[in-house]
Nucleic acid binder design. Structure first.
Lengths: 140, 140
DNA sequence: CTGGTTGCAAAATTTTTGCACTGGT
DNA sequence: ACCAGTGCAAAAATTTTGCAACCAG
C-alpha cells in the first residue's frame, strides 16, 4: 500500500499524501481522466485542489510514474506506468481495458521503425470498438 | 483538386470554400493541429474564423472525412481518412509520418479483440521516438 | 428559396500560473 | 530549516455556443 512512497522518491518526487491519494485512485480505477481523478480524490481528501491534481499529473508523467493515454474523441486518461500493453477502448462507455502486447506486434513495429531509421522509444496500440457489456446493453 | 466537393456531398456536407480550404491544408501538411490548420488557412482566406475551423473539424470527423490522431503530450492532429496505417511520431519535433499497417498487426489485433468479445471498429497504432532528422540535429 | 453554414462575440471548459503558506525529508 | 509541494484565486488557453447574415444546392 505504501509502495508508492518509494516509487516517488526514486523519481525524485516527495511522497506527499496528495500524490499517494492520486496514485491509489488511478490504481483502483485502472484508467482515469483528470476530473475523474479529482472527483474521486475529493471523497477522501476534500481539501485537495484541482490545481494540485494538474501539477502532480504533469510532474508524475514527466518522471515516468504515470502515462498519458490519449483517446480519440475523448479526454486523455492516465494510468500507472507498467509493462507494455495495448488498450481496448469502448467507444460507447469510454472504458479502457489492458491486454498484453505480444511479441508479434513488438517485433513487427520494431522492424518498421528500423526501416525508417526511427529511434523507437515507445508504442501505443489502441483498439477502438464496443465492449461486451455495452454490446449487450445496446441489443436490449 | 475538386474531388473534395464530391467527398463532402457524399457525406451530406455542403462543399463550401471553407471546407475545401481546410481539407487542402490538411492534405498538404499530412497531419495538423487545429491551430496549424487555422494559421495555414488564414494565408489564403484571411476572413475564415477559428470557430468555423472548429465547427468543421467536428462535422468532418463526425462524418468520417477526417480522423483525429491524439498524441501523448501534445495536441491532437487531424488527417484525411485513408486506409489503415500506423504513425511514427517524433517526440522531438512532433512530426507524424504514416507507414502501412501490415497484415501481421491486423490479424494479431483482430484475434485479441475476438478473445475479449470486443467488437473491433478501428485501430490506432502509434510509435513514439526520434525521427532521422531530429536524431542528426541532436548529434550535432 | 431555404436550410445548412459562416463569422463574430460571448460563454463555457480546461489547463496553467503566481504567490504566500505548509509540510516532507 | 530548507525547499519542494500545496491551495487559492486569477489568468491563459482551448473549445463551444447563440444568433444574424450568407450562400450552396
Amino acid at each position: 500500500m505504501t509502495g508508492y512512497a518509494e516509487l516517488l522518491k526514486e523519481k525524485g518526487l516527495k511522497a506527499t499524501f496528495q500524490r499517494m491519494t492520486i496514485l491509489s485512485v488511478i490504481e483502483r480505477m485502472g484508467h482515469a481522466t483528470v476530473d475523474e481523478i479529482y472527483e474521486s480524490v475529493l471523497e477522501t481528501h476534500p481539501t485537495l485542489s484541482l490545481a494540485t491534481v494538474y501539477k502532480n499529473i504533469v510532474a508524475m508523467v514527466g518522471q515516468g510514474v504515470l502515462v498519458e493515454v490519449p483517446i480519440s474523441g475523448r479526454k486523455s486518461k492516465y494510468e500507472l506506468k507498467k509493462s507494455e500493453h495495448l488498450h481496448l477502448i469502448c467507444t460507447e462507455c469510454g472504458e479502457v481495458e489492458d491486454r498484453p502486447l505480444d511479441r508479434v506486434i513488438g517485433e513487427d513495429t520494431r522492424k518498421i521503425a528500423e526501416n525508417s531509421s526511427f529511434e523507437l522509444q515507445g508504442r501505443q496500440v489502441n483498439l477502438y470498438g464496443v465492449c461486451a457489456k455495452c454490446r449487450t446493453a445496446l441489443a436490449s
